[in-house]
Each structure stands twice: as C-alpha cells, then as structure tokens.
Computed example of a mutant assay.
Amino acid sequence: MNKKWVIGGVLGVVGLVVVGLLGLVALGVWADRDMGGSGVDALMDSQALTQRFAELNTRYPFTPPPAGQGLKLDEARLEPYLAVREATLPAYDVLAKESVDFVQKHSAALDRRDSRTLLKAAGASLRMMGKAQAVLATNLDAQRMSPLEFQAITAVLYPPPPPAAPPTGAAEQAAVSLPSSPENLALLEQQLAAITPQLEDPKLTESERLQLEQRRAGLRKYITTLEQASGKDVKQANAPLLEKHRERIAKVANRTFDDLLVNPRPPGTARRPKR
C-alpha cells in the first residue's frame, strides 16, 4: 500500500472535510454521531486552530519579499525554522500512522463510498489534522515564528516541483510572458558573449565599434534586471547557507508534510488520489 496515497486518501477522501462539516451542520445530531460522536467538538477545535494561526501571524509579523522576488535567508531565522520542523515531524508521523490505520480498517466501506463511513472519515480527518496542527502552532509560538514566515522559508528550502512543459505551440508565448526564465536568460547570455569577438575585429569602424559597445552595455543591464526579477541574486546569496545546513535540511524534507500542514489546499478541493 502506498503510504503517501493513504495519508492523502484519508484526509482527502471525504471530499472532504468540507462535506463532513456541511453534513454536520445540515444533519445535526445524526451526522455528529456518525463522525464518531465528536463532530461538533472537532469543528470547534478546527475553528480555534484557525484563530490561533491568525493570532501567531499578528504576534510575530512577517513581511514577505515583493511579488516576484525571492526570500533572502537569514541564519538567525533558519535555525528556529528547522527547530519547528524537527519538533513537528513526530506529530506528522502520528498523523500518518493513524491515517494508514483508518484506511486499512475501513477500506471496503470507503471504496463503496458508504455515507456513514465518509462522515466518520471526515471526523477522523479533523481530529488527526487538528492534533498535528496544534503541535505545529505550539512549536511556532515557542520559536516566535509566524505561519506566514514558516511558509515563506519552506518555499525556499523545499520549492514545489516545476510546472509541466507548455503544450506544443505555446513555447514562444511562454518565453514572452516569462522574460526572466532560465531559457531566455541563457539566450541573452549567448548574444552578449557573441559581441566580444566582434569587437576584436580590427576592421571595425569607430561607428560600428561604438554601436557594438552600446549594445553590449544595454544587454548587460537588461540581463542584470532580469536576473534580479528572477531572484537569481537571492538564490546565489542563499546558496552558502543552504549548503552549510544541507544535511539538516535534507533530514526533515517531507513533501506530504508540506502539502498537509504547511500549505494545505482549501477544504473541498481535495480529491481521492487514483490507485
């Protein structure tokens, strides 16, 4: 059994938490009973956690970099970030184990989409996620870090997979819409490099030499601007710090942890993964 599928399955299978919550509100005591007898409590706990995360953002304000610019890492903030992650992973491991146990116990009913089992899964997912999120909130508070800052650093250390290649015929449009893409920058660098041998031609007139030098200066300035827009300078500045803490960063890498606890999708967008 694919562990990652199971974790995502039990937390996404109900369509999920939102279906359970809407059912709880609409069906009252019946839904609460089928969610394990604690649906109302789980809903209230979830709302309290949402408020707690909002308060942490207020208590420990964080200003993200301007849109389109990367976050420059600070070792004084990277250390508490890694401490939060290390302290929260055991709670995630509990969440993972409980998810596996739940799916194994109720797999047949989940496959046939039994309504009572789906509501029970909604209640279970709220409880399991709530416990892990509460640990995350406690650890963030202990390190005086906001959820927003934690998300921002996560995006630098564990960036999402690159998007799929554009469909045939869209490459030119992508190059125009993303001038700071690595491919476009590489092309500009090639154009810049080609100017140097031209300037070494002794047959150049003063006018031609001046035009080439102006073109070279313009290309250099444009490339620098695009590199700044792409965050290349920030990535280069971050590189030594990432290398220094490489082993520790790798040890706490976990894509599913990020998807579920750091950057969860809005309720109702989850779908049960295909086998």
Results as ranks from 00 to 15, higher is better:
residue 123 G to M: 09
residue 139 N to C: 01
residue 134 A to N: 13
residue 120 K to I: 02
residue 135 V to L: 07
residue 129 M to W: 01
residue 113 R to L: 13
residue 112 R to P: 03
residue 128 M to F: 11
residue 130 G to T: 12
residue 118 L to I: 13
residue 136 L to Y: 11
residue 121 A to Y: 02
residue 132 A to E: 00
residue 116 R to N: 09
residue 128 M to K: 12
residue 125 S to T: 14
residue 134 A to R: 15
residue 118 L to E: 00
residue 119 L to R: 14
residue 135 V to D: 01
residue 119 L to A: 05
residue 137 A to E: 05
residue 112 R to I: 02
residue 141 D to Q: 15
residue 128 M to Q: 13
residue 135 V to S: 04
residue 117 T to L: 05
residue 134 A to G: 10
residue 134 A to T: 13
residue 114 D to G: 06
residue 117 T to D: 01
residue 138 T to C: 04
residue 114 D to L: 04
residue 118 L to K: 09
residue 124 A to L: 11
residue 133 Q to T: 09
residue 120 K to L: 12
residue 124 A to D: 04
residue 125 S to K: 13
residue 133 Q to S: 12
residue 119 L to I: 03
residue 129 M to T: 14
residue 132 A to M: 04
residue 131 K to Y: 01
residue 130 G to K: 14
residue 134 A to K: 15
residue 129 M to Y: 02
residue 135 V to I: 13
residue 130 G to E: 05
residue 128 M to T: 13
residue 113 R to H: 08
residue 138 T to N: 07
residue 119 L to N: 11
residue 135 V to Q: 07
residue 129 M to A: 10
residue 127 R to Y: 00
residue 120 K to R: 13
residue 128 M to W: 12
residue 123 G to C: 09
residue 112 R to S: 08
residue 128 M to C: 12
residue 129 M to G: 07
residue 127 R to H: 07
residue 122 A to N: 05
residue 122 A to K: 12
residue 116 R to D: 00
residue 136 L to Q: 15
residue 114 D to Q: 10
residue 115 S to D: 07
residue 118 L to T: 09
residue 137 A to H: 05
residue 141 D to C: 10
residue 118 L to C: 03
residue 121 A to H: 05
residue 140 L to R: 12
residue 115 S to V: 13
residue 123 G to T: 08
residue 121 A to Q: 09
residue 127 R to D: 10
residue 112 R to V: 03
residue 117 T to R: 13
